[in-house]
Design a protein around this nucleic acid. Structure first.
Length: 389
RNA sequence: GGUGGGGUGCCGGAGCGGUCAAUCGGAGCAGACUGUAAAUCUGCCGGCCAUGCGCCUACGAAGGUUCGAAUCCUUCCCCCACCA
């Protein structure tokens, strides 16, 4: 069976289905982020209703607590968090970037100072793979080195090359685990669900298209991959540079595997990425922005804590079918934020996740009918024009 | 009626002769957030505007002392505590 079926394409934009051990994922796909084994504020049934087909977990965070062994003993991450559908775990590579200043990097790996209690923890390609194996996600990410978007060429090259060397170590370790796993089948340290786990390499190279291409060559030469990820974008570089990288990469990416753009998630960036041939993306934006009071709509971002909604009894987004929009007024949501009520955070997280999933589904429909360019143009026009008004 | 304490910006509450349009909270307003150190962070918050070590009006009220007062003095008004 084909693990990734390409159903249709429209220019670079693609629509497909990715088959994973815990179910199928329609692409383009938006993946909500559940770093600590929970998409902040939302229950699995909330996610299910929002149309989420796959969510993320994080190696670094789940390693610190409760620890991968605990999760493994409790049946793996799917069972632990009661999410029966596909899961992807990030490797901790992003924390190499976000916890810069609290970590020390060597060729062997990265020593982190825990952001929780200051204790020291070591993560290497092998350890990141082991942890993800125990967590048992459908998709495990290679341990990579992420650098700031404005990084110079030398830093970008070093990180890209190191990521490649680390990839080889990840791959070897992952294959060992698989071989051992199919031999022993089901022991404590070997999640049964991990047997079908896919390891995904990450293309680094910052904003330098040639480094990106070189990374891709290295990756393709190192094995057969079921998916490819583009990392190290949306980390502070100008938007135009991110698009230039994706545009250039599109020409050389193999068409037969899904492409995962890591960490991208504002509506306009998602639509742009889909237009440049990306199939999957994840982002904390819907939940974090939601908790911070901002709602995504076709008319741009709305700050729902603002005084302008004080007596507005319209729904947040009349076009939206989420619980928030079907049930509550803007005035009520604004009141919840003003009063610091928990429900407000939850309602906007709920809406934003649903909004992005619907957005991507609309893109998918447009691709299938081959009017993606027109659709995305019209969408962007509306999204940006009202924002200025 | 007596004695003591107090009245400061939307609220609470510092300041107790100059560097005070006034520390600090809170409230209010605006903004940021992209593989989650984030229910977080930043800015504004007397009025005006050319946003500036600018002008105006300000620390219960009215007078006064002083080069200069939210800060000292006098009277008045109002609160609070205790005593009658």
């Amino acid at each position: 069976m084909f693990e990734f079926e390409l159903i249709s394409s429209d220019g670079p934009a693609r629509a497909g289905v990715w088959h994973l051990p815990h179910g199928s994922v329609d692409t383009p796909c938006f993946m909500p982020v559940g770093t600590q084994g929970t998409v902040k504020g939302l229950s699995p049934s909330d996610l299910e209703r929002s149309g989420a087909q796959i969510v993320l977990g994080n190696t670094y965070h789940l390693h610190l607590r409760p620890g991968e062994d605990v999760v493994a003993r409790l049946g793996g991450l799917h069972q632990f968090m009661a999410w029966p559908r596909p899961l992807l775990t990030d490797s901790g590579g992003f924390q190499v970037f976000s916890l810069e200043g609290m970590r020390k990097l060597t060729e062997e790996g990265v020593t982190f100072r825990s952001h929780i209690d200051g204790s020291e923890h070591f993560l290497s390609p092998e350890i990141a793979v082991d942890i993800q194996w125990k967590l048992g996600a459908d998709v495990a990410m290679a341990f990579d080195q992420v650098i700031p978007g404005q990084a110079g060429r030398q830093d970008a090259m070093d990180a890209q090359e190191r990521t490649l060397r680390w990839l080889e170590r990840c791959r070897e370790r992952h294959e060992e685990l698989k071989a051992e796993g199919s031999r022993l089948n089901n022991t404590l340290s070997l999640q049964p669900s991990a047997l079908g786990q896919t390891l995904v390499p990450i293309i680094q190279g910052a904003t330098y298209p040639d480094l990106r291409r070189e990374a891709l060559r290295g990756i393709l030469g190192a094995g057969d991959w079921k998916a490819l990820a583009v990392g190290g974008l949306s980390v502070g570089e100008p938007k135009a540079e991110m698009q230039a990288v994706l545009e250039d990469l599109h020409a050389v990416l193999p068409p037969g595997v899904p492409r995962y753009l890591m960490g991208v998630g504002f509506p306009a960036d998602l639509v742009a990425a889909i237009g440049l041939g990306m199939d999957l993306a994840d982002c904390v934006a819907p939940t974090r922005m939601g908790r911070h009071g901002t709602a995504f709509t076709d008319d741009g971002q709305l700050n729902m804590g603002g005084a302008r909604w004080k007596e507005d009894d319209a729904p947040l987004d009349a076009d939206c079918d989420c619980e928030t929009c079907r049930t509550f007024s803007r005035a009520y949501i604004r009141h919840l934020f003003q009063a610091g009520e928990l429900l407000g955070l939850r309602l906007l997280a709920l809406h934003n996740v649903r909004y992005l999933i619907r957005l991507v589904a609309r893109a998918r429909a447009a691709i299938a009918e081959r009017y993606f360019t027109a659709w995305s143009g019209a969408w962007l026009q509306r999204y940006t024009s009202r924002e200025q008004a």
